[in-house]
């Protein structure tokens, strides 16, 4: 233990160098420090490799598909036999089904989240509700597909439809929406609620005018995450909306078959006989990933800028 001058300089977190000079170098500490350095190097290498893998993956998908992409491809009909088919109706169906599913799941999911955060008393009933939400969020998507199939194809006997796909997808989204809303609402500080109550506001008025505006950006972020996931969901849609389209571009009929882009990627890859199936699959995958990234990022950008303006 010599040279106490450098004791205060380096926090041990920074690494072993300062320590090494301070303490007499026994064989044990030397070995421990060598290992420490090797492990630090190892962790960084691991991180680097994983990041590399992720970016390579994104690059592979986008680079294969995007350069070959034309506007034509995005609006043309898919072809069964001739090459040169597009993805017009399936892309439209993707957005249409996403829209229907959000229309159903967002009000209920946010309502459920607000109940769990604001109203739920701390008792056994709430415990049971919480188990329900957690169990529901663990249900595999294929099971929701079977449920949709049982309800729409068997019970109501309407076959594979856009409506069935949208509703089944909404059921899949519900628990995640409830969870993100609950977290967002819980993160709102209690003082500002109390300020609202002190002004004589009712509970709902406080939620609508005080809590929700504060929690809004977190809720929107959550909804975007859910929407991105729903846009790429395929197992549910295959079972409930089918593997075909009605063959028209702007088909708003809720009871037409509703193949989406994700399902189309599967169909082209596994069953299609057109000779340019590989190119279509590449381009579809690129469009799919691009839209999902867009949903995830674009909706959040204004929020980021908003935050920055407020000086956070």
């Amino acid at each position: 233990m010599s040279g106490s001058s450098s004791t205060g300089k380096g926090h041990p977190v920074k690494g072993g160098r300062t320590q090494a000079m301070e303490f007499s170098r026994t064989r044990y500490t030397a070995r421990a420090q060598r290992r420490n350095k090797a492990a630090t190097f190892g962790f960084y290498t691991l991180g680097f490799l994983v990041m590399l893998l992720i970016f390579w993956m994104l690059f592979t998908i986008l680079a294969k598909g995007l350069p070959a992409l034309s506007f034509d491809f995005l609006i043309k009909q898919p072809e069964e036999i001739d090459p040169g088919g597009g993805i017009g109706p399936v892309l439209f169906n993707s957005f249409y089904i996403l829209f229907i599913s959000l229309l159903i799941s967002v009000p209920i999911g946010i309502g459920a989240g607000i109940y769990m955060a604001e109203y739920a008393p701390d008792n056994a009933f709430t415990g049971a509700l919480r188990i329900c939400v957690e169990s529901l969020s663990s249900v595999p998507s294929i099971v929701f597909g079977l449920l949709g199939l049982a309800i729409f194809a068997e019970y109501f006997d309407v076959g594979l439809t856009i409506l069935g796909g949208g509703v089944s997808l909404a059921l899949l989204n519900l628990p995640m929406l409830a969870r993100v809303t609950e977290e967002a609402v819980r993160a709102v500080p209690g003082e500002i609620r109390e300020a609202g109550y002190a002004l004589g506001m009712t509970k709902f008025h406080v939620i609508r005018k005080v809590v929700l505006p504060v929690a809004l950006s977190a809720i929107i972020t959550g909804v975007c995450l859910v929407a991105g996931r729903a846009f790429g969901e395929s197992a549910v849609i295959i079972l409930t909306a089918g593997l075909s389209t009605s063959g028209e571009m702007w088909d708003f009929n809720l009871f037409s078959p509703g193949e989406t882009l994700a399902v189309h990627l599967w169909y082209v890859q596994s069953e299609a006989i057109v000779e340019d199936a590989r190119q279509i699959a590449d381009k579809s995958a690129a469009v799919l990933v691009f839209v999902v990234l867009l949903i995830n990022l674009a909706f959040r950008l204004p929020l980021w800028f908003g935050k920055r303006r407020q000086g956070h």
């Binding site: 946010i110 009712t202 008025h205």
Partner: peptide, 30 residues
């Protein structure tokens, strides 16, 4: 305000019960 307060309390409760109903439907149908 009192009316909307009451109505929405029931709406929020309905939402969470709807979630449980979905779980029930899953278990029942499958």
């Amino acid at each position: 305000h009192l009316l909307s307060n009451t109505l929405f309390r029931y709406y929020f409760l309905f939402s969470i019960l709807a979630l449980c109903l979905v779980l029930g439907l899953v278990i029942l149908f499958i």
